[in-house]
């Protein structure tokens, strides 16, 4: 088992059409493994991993892997509320999965309110593109197109492969770092009754208070 000491816990949720590769992405991220076949997710599954952000702060990512299947939609929407970050996952070889991204984003925004989560647009299965087939005909969503959409909506964009492991870490670190930055700027706070951000077990209680205090002092002197 990993070292249980961490400073913060962030709850991230993965959403997107079924079979785009949410569970595979998480499996690779948490276990470093890729399974060719996997069962469709029932409701929601959980993964966890501890990472470090730039200043060395240890963050436990609690990852909620939602079912993409339509029939679970009514259930999965009850799980959004306590998330501080949402990964909008699509399959670069599946046009409609990308076209549904705005819907997923709207749904997430609506259910996470009043909190404003960090979003990331994550394309999956890039290993299928231009690997065995020379012309890359399998790709149905171009990187530029996705990037443009991401820019328009203020999202981070990354293309990954859970098979080769390409960019998988970055996708999660990107979101974690952004959440952490927003904590630093005071936009996000640890709140009672909201589990998006929690402090770790080993964190002394006074810590956050000090952080906050230091910030106010800074703002008044400048």
């Amino acid at each position: 088992m990993v070292d249980p000491i961490f400073d913060y816990q962030f709850r991230l949720i993965l959403i997107g059409d079924s079979t785009v590769g949410k569970s595979s992405l998480l499996k690779y991220f948490t276990e470093g493994k890729f399974a060719e076949l996997s069962d469709p997710t029932v409701g929601v599954d959980f993964f966890a991993r501890i990472i470090e952000v730039q200043d060395g702060t240890r963050i436990k990512l609690q990852l909620w892997d939602t079912a993409g299947q339509e029939r679970f939609r009514s259930i999965t929407k009850s799980y959004y509320r306590n998330s501080v970050g949402a990964l909008l996952v699509y399959d670069v070889c599946n046009r409609s999965s990308f076209e549904h991204i705005p819907l997923w984003m709207m749904e997430a925004k609506r259910h996470i309110e009043p909190h404003r989560p960090v979003f990331a647009l994550v394309g999956c299965k890039v290993d299928l593109v231009g690997n065995d087939n020379k012309n890359g005909a399998w790709r149905e969503v171009s990187c530029e197109e996705a990037r443009m959409f991401a820019e328009e909506n203020g999202l981070h964009h990354v293309e990954t492969s859970a098979k080769t492991g390409s960019n998988v870490e970055q996708a999660f670190i990107l979101v974690a770092q952004e959440v952490y930055n927003r904590i630093q700027t005071g936009e996000y706070k640890v709140e009672d009754g909201w589990d998006g951000i929690k402090t770790g077990f080993n964190r002394p209680n006074g810590m956050d208070f000090n952080l906050l205090e230091a910030e106010t002092v800074q703002s008044t002197c400048c």
């Binding site: 088992m1 249980p4 409701g43 929601v44 959980f46 966890a48 609690q62 909620w64 259930i75 009850s78 799980y79 509320r81 306590n82 589990d195 077990f201």
Partner: peptide, 18 residues
């Protein structure tokens, strides 16, 4: 702590949400 590590707590929480 162990119960949490085995994802027991989060399953309970999700069930509570439902």
């Amino acid at each position: 702590t162990l119960f949490d590590d085995y994802e027991g707590l989060v399953h309970l929480e999700a069930l509570e949400m439902l």
